[in-house]
Design a protein around this nucleic acid. Sequence first.
DNA 1: CGTACTGTTGATCAAAGTCAATTGAGGTGG
DNA 2: CCACCTCAATTGACTTTGATCAACAGTACG
Lengths: 249, 249
Amino acid sequence: MFADSQVQLRESPSCLSKKLSHYRQVPADEEPILAKTLRQNQRSTQSRAILIEQGEPAAEICVILKGWASRQKIVSDGSRQILAFHLPGDICEFNALLGASSDTQTVALSDVRSARITRRALNELAATAPKVSQALWWEALSSNAIQREWLINIARRGASERIAHLLCELHYRLSLVGAASDTAFASPLTQAQLGNACGMSAEHTNRTLRKLRDTVGIGLEDGEVRFADIDAAHRYSDFDRRYVLLNGL
Amino acid sequence: MFADSQVQLRESPSCLSKKLSHYRQVPADEEPILAKTLRQNQRSTQSRAILIEQGEPAAEICVILKGWASRQKIVSDGSRQILAFHLPGDICEFNALLGASSDTQTVALSDVRSARITRRALNELAATAPKVSQALWWEALSSNAIQREWLINIARRGASERIAHLLCELHYRLSLVGAASDTAFASPLTQAQLGNACGMSAEHTNRTLRKLRDTVGIGLEDGEVRFADIDAAHRYSDFDRRYVLLNGL
DNA sequence: CGTACTGTTGATCAAAGTCAATTGAGGTGG
DNA sequence: CCACCTCAATTGACTTTGATCAACAGTACG
C-alpha cells in the first residue's frame, strides 16, 4: 500500500506524480522526466509570503511540493476571499499556460517548497512525456470541479455541514498524496482562514467547530484535524469524493 | 474594426469566433476552418431539455450558437444548484477534451442551437488552426475565472449587490458577442433561476429585484433586463469586468 | 514586558429562509 | 368559449441563521 521507505530515502515520488497516477497510469519511462523537470527550478517561500502576485502576466506554473498555499482575491473593501487551497502535489496558476495574467493572488499558508515550470519546459514535457502532460490537463479540470463544489458548499449548505464538507475534501485530497492518515491530517489553517474559505465570520467558525467536535466528532486542535468517524463525517456533510478526481457519476 | 458587412450577409461570424477575437487575433485563414467545424455537427434542443447529461463520459464539447443553457448539479436532497450560465459563443464541457465524464448536467434555458465538436475534430483544429485552438484554451481559463467570481459573489456580497453583479456580468458577456445593447439585454431567466444561481430563495430574489428596480434602476421585465445607468450598476455591484477576459490586473 | 495574533465567549441585530396564500398569464381539453 | 391546470411572480408573517460588536484569555515572539 505505501511506498517502500528505502526508496523514499533516495528519492520519493513527488506528490504531483502520486496525484497524476490517480488520473492516468504514468509510464515508468516518463516518471523520471517529470522528476527532473520538478528538480530544475525550485523555490522556498516563507509562510505568509506571496507565491504568485495578482496581475502579473505569469510565464510559469507553480507546483506545490511541500506545505499549503491559498489562492485569494482582494475585494474592493480591502478584505480577501479565499478561493482555493493548494496542497502538496497541486498546480497553481494554470493561467500561465497561455501567458494570461492572474486575476488572483497565491500566498503561502505555511513554509512552502515549490517547483516552477516555465512554458518552455512544459512544451518539452509535452513532447517527451505525453502522458504526464495530459495528466496535467486532467489536474486542471479537477481543480475546476473542486471550485464548483465550493460554490455548492457555500450556496447550499449550512455552516456546520459547510465546514465539515471542506474538511472532508481536504482530508481526501491529502490522502491522495499520502499526506493524511485514515482519520486525521495536519493542517496549518487558522479558524479564520477556514471560515473565510467557507464565506463565514471567524466567530461563527469558532462556534461551528465546537459544535462539530461535540456532535459529529470532527476536531481541529494543535494544527491537526481529527475525525472520530470518517464515514459519519462524510454522511453528515454530504461529501461525495467523486468530484475530486472526476470519477464518472 | 468590424467584419465586412458583405461577408456578414453571406455568413455572419459565429458568436464563438467573435468571442475568441477578444482573446487573440484570429487569422483570416483560420476563420473559415472554425466556421466549417461548427457547421459540421449541429443540434437543436428544446427549452428545458438536457444538453449534456451528468456522468456520461463525453466525447465532444458543445458550443452554444443560439440560446442560453445552465450548468447545474443535483444535490443529495434533490434540489439543484446552478453553477454557470452558458451564453451564445460559450463552450460547455471542457471535460470532454480529455474524455472525463461530467460531474454536472447542462440543460437548455431556452431553445438552443449548439454545435458539437468531437475530440477528433478538435485535434484536427489544433493542427490546421492553431490560433483558434489556443483561443479555446483561453476560453476555458476565462470560464474558470467567472466561476471563481461567482464564489466571491455568493460568499461576500449581500443579496442586492449579488443579483446586480450577476446581471452586470451577463450584460457584459452578451455584449462581447453582440447580443446586448448598451443598456439592456434579452434574458430567458426566471426569477427563481436567477436566485438559484446566486444561492438565494425565489421569494427573496423577488423582493431584491423590486429593490434593485427602485433604488439602482435595474429592471427585469418581459424577458428583458434593462439598466437605467450601467455605470451606476457597475459601481453599486462592485463589478470589474476584467476577470471575464483575464485582462491583466 | 509589551505587541500581535489566535481562539473564545456573550449579547444584539440584520439578513435571508420558510411557510402560506394569492394573483395572473398561458395552455389544454371538453 | 369556458373550466381547469400549471407555472411564475408576488406578498405577508414568522423564524432561523449567521454577522457584528465588544471583551478577554492564551501564546509566541521580539
